[in-house]
Design a binder for these strands. Sequence first.
DNA 1: CATGAATGAGGTTTCATTCAT
DNA 2: GATGAATGAAACCTCATTCAT
Lengths: 233, 233, 233, 233
Amino acid sequence: MSSFQHVDEGRSPADASTPAPAPAPTELRGRNADRTQAEILQAATREFAAFGLGGARMERIATSAGVNKRLVYYYFESKELLFLSVLEEAYARIREAEQKLHLGDLDAATAVRRLVEFTWQYYLDNPEFLTLLNSENLHRARHLQRSSRIQEMNSPLVALLRDVVERGQREGLFRGGVDPVQLYISIASLCYFYLSNNATLSTIFGRDLLAPTALSERLSHMTDVVMGYLLRK
Amino acid sequence: MSSFQHVDEGRSPADASTPAPAPAPTELRGRNADRTQAEILQAATREFAAFGLGGARMERIATSAGVNKRLVYYYFESKELLFLSVLEEAYARIREAEQKLHLGDLDAATAVRRLVEFTWQYYLDNPEFLTLLNSENLHRARHLQRSSRIQEMNSPLVALLRDVVERGQREGLFRGGVDPVQLYISIASLCYFYLSNNATLSTIFGRDLLAPTALSERLSHMTDVVMGYLLRK
Amino acid sequence: MSSFQHVDEGRSPADASTPAPAPAPTELRGRNADRTQAEILQAATREFAAFGLGGARMERIATSAGVNKRLVYYYFESKELLFLSVLEEAYARIREAEQKLHLGDLDAATAVRRLVEFTWQYYLDNPEFLTLLNSENLHRARHLQRSSRIQEMNSPLVALLRDVVERGQREGLFRGGVDPVQLYISIASLCYFYLSNNATLSTIFGRDLLAPTALSERLSHMTDVVMGYLLRK
Amino acid sequence: MSSFQHVDEGRSPADASTPAPAPAPTELRGRNADRTQAEILQAATREFAAFGLGGARMERIATSAGVNKRLVYYYFESKELLFLSVLEEAYARIREAEQKLHLGDLDAATAVRRLVEFTWQYYLDNPEFLTLLNSENLHRARHLQRSSRIQEMNSPLVALLRDVVERGQREGLFRGGVDPVQLYISIASLCYFYLSNNATLSTIFGRDLLAPTALSERLSHMTDVVMGYLLRK
DNA sequence: CATGAATGAGGTTTCATTCAT
DNA sequence: GATGAATGAAACCTCATTCAT
C-alpha cells in the first residue's frame, strides 16, 4: 500500500486485470468477528485507495480479505457504509499519530517544523489517505457528513495548533494574525498537492518528483515556506 | 483522432455557445462537425468534472451535448480518448489565461502576487479543472502521458516564472535558492488543496470554507505565505 | 416436524399473547419451546400475509418473533414448511370460528344470513387469511396438498351447510337444486373478492371501497344476492 | 398460457426449473422496435402471470422474448415499470373485449346473462389476468396507482352497466336499488374467486373444480345467483 | 435451547460499445 | 454526418440456509 498506484473510479470492463493482493491468511481465520472486520477494513482501504469509490469492487475486497462477499455486507451493509468506515479509520489513524508527536511539549518553532515533517512523512507513508480523501471530495464529503465521530476526532488538532501559534506569538517569534486552521490547511496543502498530483505534475514538468533528492528538496522548501511566513522579519 | 480540433481557436471563451457562422457545407446534408465536437467536449468536461472518469456516463454526455451516443464515439473513439481531449483542453485554457497576465511586464513582487491571485481566482471560476486533475491523478496520469502536446504547453510557464524569480533576486528583494518549479507547485498547492478538498475540510472543521469572508481571508493568507517565503528578511 | 403443535389448543384465541404458565423446565437452561414456536408462527403469519411466500424474509420473521434466525429453522425446518404451518393454522382458526356460530341451531334462512355476515366480518378482521390463500393459490396449493389435516378440517363445514340447505328446502323456503359447495363458494366469493381485490378495484373505479358506508352497503348487497338466489319466488 | 400454472413470488433458488417457452421466432426479428416491445410484453405477461411480480425473472422474460436482457431495460426501464405496462395491457384487452359484446344492443336480462357468461369465459381463457391482479393486489395496487390511463379505461364499463340496470328497472323486470358497481363486482367475484382460488378449494373440498361438468355447473349456478338477485319476485 | 458467523447461488441493474441503416 | 436498436460482461446486493459453539 506504500506506492502511489490507482486505477479507476467507476465501472470499466477492461480494468479488472490488476492482480488482487493475496488474501491475508495469517492463521486461518474463522469465527472471529473483530478480526474478520478488521481484515475487511484493511482490504477495503487498499481497494478504495487504489480504485476510488466507484472503481472499487466488493468482490475484490472480499477476496483480498479472505472472506465471502456476502460477509462484507453482513458487517458493513453497503459499499457506501464500508467506504465511510474506511474514511473514519483513516482519519482516526492520522489524528492518533499526530497526538503522539506531543507538539505541546516542544517550543513553538520546533513544533511547527515537526508538524510539517510529520505531515509530509505521513502522506508519503500512507498514500492511500490522499486518494481516499480525493474520492470523498469528488463525492462532496457525502459520506463524512453522515459521520458522528468525524468532527470530534479533528477538533483536538485545531486546539493544539492554536496553542502552539499563541505560544510562538507570546514569545515574539511568530507574526500576529495567524489563524491556526489556515495554517494547518496550508501545511497540509503543500504536502498533499505535491504527492496527490505528483503524476500530472511529473508529466507536465517532465521531471520525476518522487526521486529521493526531489523529495528532500521538497521538504526543505516547504519548511522554508511555512517558517518564512510564521517567523517575524 | 486522439487530439481535438479546438473549435474556439482565436475566439474568446465566453462566446463558445454563440452559434458560429455556418461554414460552407461540404455535403448537402452536412451539419456542423466542429460545432458538434465542441458541444460534446463541453458536455464531457462537465460530466467528467462532476463524476470523475469512471463515474462519467457516455449516455449523459451525449444527451447533454444534444447528440446521439453513437456520434460521441464517431468523433472521439472511446471514453478514454474523450477524457484525454478534455484534459488537453483544460490545460490549454489555463495556460492561455496565464499568458494573458503578461507577468514579464510586471515587477517581480507584483508578478508573484498577481500569479497567486490569478491562480486562486482561476480555480474558483473553473472548479472542473481541479476535479479533472484529481481524476487523472487517480489514474496516475495515464492519459496525459500519451499526449504529445502537454509538455510543450507547460514549459513557457516555468520559463516565465524562472525569469520573475531571477529578477527578484537580482534586485535583492527575493531570497536565494528558489526553484521556480517548487514555487509554482507551492502556489498551486495553497489554492488547489483548499478548494479541491473544501468538502472534507469544511466537514471536519465544521466551518464553511466557501463563505465570502473565508475566501478573501484565504487569499490574503496565501499571499502572506508566499511573500513571507520569497521576500528577504 | 411438518405439522405445528398448536399452542392455543383449547384456549381462546384472544389470550394467545398472555404469557402461558411456565411448563416444568426439562433442562436447567430450558426456555419455553411452545411459546417460542407460537411467536414465530405469529410473526410468520404477518410476514407471509404482508409479502407473500416469495416476498417474505426469514430474517424479518426471526427478528419480529424476537428470536435468532437459526431457531426458526430449528423448529420449522424450512421456509416452505413454515408456510404450510401458517396455512394450517389459518384454516384451523376460521373453521373453529365457524363452528362457534352453531348454524345448526338456527332456522335455515337465518343460518345463511348469519354465515354471510360472519364470513364478511371474518375476512374484514383477518385480512391476512386472504393474502395467505392468494399466495397458496399462486403456488397451486402445493403446500396444502401435502397436509394431512386440511380436508378433515373442512368437511364439517360442508356437512353443516348441506344440512341447512336441506332444511330450507324441506320447509319450501329455498329453491331446489342447490349445491352446498357451490353456495359456500359463492358466499366466500362475494366477500373475498371485494376485499382481496379492493386495492385494484378502488383504483380502477376511483372509489374508496373500504369506507364505512361502502362496507355496510356491500354487506347488505351480498345478503340480497345470496337470499335472492336461495329464496323461492 | 391457457392453464392455471404459477409458481413463485420472490426468489427461491430451486424454482428455475420450469422450461421457458421457446422464443417466438416468427421471422427472425431484428431492428423492429414495435415488434420487439410487443414480444417483450407478451413474454413478461406470461412470466408475471406464472410467477408473480417477485418470482418473475427478467432473464427468463428476455430469453422468452428472444432478446437480450439489456434490451428489456432499454424499453421498459425497470421490472416494476414493465409490470405496470403488462397490467395496463391486460386491462386494455379485457375492456376491449367487453366493448365488443355490445351489451347496449341487448335487452337488459340478456345483457346481464351475456356479461356473466363473457366474464366467466374470459377468465377461463385468460387465467393470467387473475394472477396478475392478485399480484398487483398483494402490492396494494402500487403500480396501477401510478397509471394515468387506468381509470379512463374502466369508466365506460360502469356507464354501460348502469344503462343496462336502468333499462331493466324501467321495464319492471329488475329490482330497485341496484348499484351497477356492486353488481359488476359481484359478477366478477363469482367468476374470479372460483378460478383464482381453484387450487385451494379443490384441495380442501377434495373435488376437481376444473372438471368440464363442474365448470358448466358453476356457470349455471352463477347465472342463477345473479338473475335470482336482479329479477323481481 | 439458542446463537452469531459465514456462504453459494443468483437476482436486478448498469455500462461502454457495436450493429445496421 | 447522424442515429436508434441491440448486446456481453460484470457490478452491487439479497436470500435461504448451514456451520461451529
